[in-house]
Amino acid sequence: MGCYLSTNSKKVRKTQGYEEPTVLASETPFTVSEVEALYELYMKLSNSIIEDGLIHKEEFQLALFRNENEKNLFADRIFDLFDVKRNGVIEFGEFVRSLGVFHPNAPLEDKIAFAFRLYDLRQTGYIEREELKEMVLALLHESDLVLSDDMIESIVDKTFKDADTKDDGRIDQDEWKAFVSQHPSLIKNMTLPYLKDITLVFPSFIARTEVEDSE
């Protein structure tokens, strides 16, 4: 099926960062046709504001929030982790490889590690108390929830007490793994059921190409 992409390549403007679906399928939980379906999604997202076939942060925000100007700490972190080359855009290969972690069949340890990197805001290799508090405050702000400072401190303290078993004021990767194994719901958002049905959601890559050919 992947042959369609290369044999019909006259129909596909290959953008910067484009990688062959067969290569991406071999390195991720996706099949070739699922990668092709993701290309449909990618092209839609990457041309929503700036038509250059690359996902800019505003386009990512627009897709997530229906608002290109909505700032959000967590969306920023996701964007930064997807932007592996750190060039300010998410390229197609980066998009597929990163979304692969969210596939229902991706290894659990990959999901746990990704969530750790997500929450390690300053990339020190640890989740620190200040970072956790910053994330709680961001979530409250985003949700228009108001809690007293004491309440916020209590939530952060309690969580830290439970997760920081070495009691050194920071959560390392081993502590994080142990904490997630006790609270599996923490990484529920690291699985996107949609990805199992991506060819149903975006079924039209091959079909559309053929339709265009016949027009």
Binding site: L41, I78, L99, D162, N189, L192, V201
Partner: peptide, 26 residues
Amino acid sequence: VAPVTMNAFELISKSRGLNLGSLFEK
């Protein structure tokens, strides 16, 4: 839900910014 008993990470994981499902909505 009494907030003090909440797990901070549980709270954070509800962020809309982490809900990538929105990317797939047409």
